[in-house]
Design a protein around this nucleic acid. Structure first.
Lengths: 185, 185
DNA sequence: TAATGCATGTAATCGGTTACATGATTCA
DNA sequence: TGAATCATGTAACCGATTACATGCATTA
């Protein structure tokens, strides 16, 4: 998904500054499945202005530098609806972890163990983080958006499954380094 | 992972042509977690030659155009070991499907249902495909590479989990469109 | 006082995709 | 006859990242 569409999407949920849009990809609702940098966000926002899809308002702040709050126009909302109406190609997951583990035989055992442990940790903590966010949203009493709920639930399920798989197969890979793992299936 | 390293990796497993390397990302062992196009593979192979990491041999074929078989040099194998010795950053999954489903409320119900069904199918068929490959490898009697086995198992687990999650939550999202899904947790 | 957070933006660079160019063989 | 497979490569283009430039306020 290109950054322009991503900005359209964030702004569709409400007005925001470039800085806040960045945060939406770091901590916010899109954190675990999309990302964008300032170097792509600011030019994208300028393009949105130029194309009449958004309008900006400068807001003064005490002390802080001014912020520029972007808001979609009617044309912008249309453009967004059109964008999500397109047919997507199936997702393909790219993973450096799998690339590395594929070559487990070429690496020292302790290095493999370390890699697996680190990935278990990162998957687990990501799952826990999302779970915490969900609990908080539930407790807050705010209205729950079904799409958002489904998406965060998906994140939990996938990260959990990834961590579980690694935990279950860690020792098999390490001890059986050369022998047949998981043969009893 | 850049294409140069990816080529290094494929060649580490044995000599190959550019065309065969491409296939490794389409049907081969790297299919479900890395990808590369001709436009990046051929220049990468030239670079490997120029840097002395690989050597090529032209092989004539009956009828077919000549093929150029690449093979790593000792320096190439070193470079590969060095590459997999680097510390990777954690994987981040990017997903257009999740992006779309996040905005379920903005889409017609039948469109959402169709999207989910298509993704269930694609996840399920990817899982089944990997399972079939694994069964075949097991039956073939060839030696099983533990790293490769772990990686393909990971693929099965993740795709399975993704499909399962969507199946379980499909109707909740569709019927409760506006109400609270999965509240009974 | 050093780092972090808030805040916006540009420029160099890079890596990769898409499309193009070429051409024979085999299979439906 | 047309499509798919095998086979190699180039060039235009694009999107995005990284690093840079600036600057104030707060917190450790």
């Amino acid at each position: 998904m290109d950054v322009k569409t991503l900005c359209l999407a964030v702004l569709f949920k409400g007005e925001a500054t470039g800085y806040e849009i960045k945060k939406a990809f770091e901590e916010g609702p899109f954190a675990h499945f999309q990302r964008a940098s300032f170097g792509s966000i600011y030019p994208a926002l300028s393009r949105l202005l130029a194309e009449g899809l958004a309008e900006a308002e400068a807001r003064e702040q005490d002390g802080r530098p001014d912020k520029k709050v972007y808001r979609l126009t009617a044309a912008g909302r249309d453009a967004f609806h059109q964008a999500i109406g397109q047919d997507p190609e199936p997702d393909q997951f790219r993973s450096d972890m799998l690339f590395l583990l594929y070559f487990a035989r070429e690496l020292p055992m302790d290095r493999v163990a370390d890699l697996i442990d680190r990935y278990i940790d990162s998957y687990r903590s990501q799952a826990e983080h999302i779970v915490a966010c969900r609990a908080q949203r539930l407790a807050s009493g705010e209205e729950i958006d079904p799409g958002r709920w489904l998406v965060s639930g998906f994140g939990v399920a996938i990260y959990q499954a990834a961590a579980d798989y690694l935990i279950e197969n860690r020792d098999r890979l390490l001890s059986g380094n050369g022998r047949l793992p998981e043969a009893a299936e």
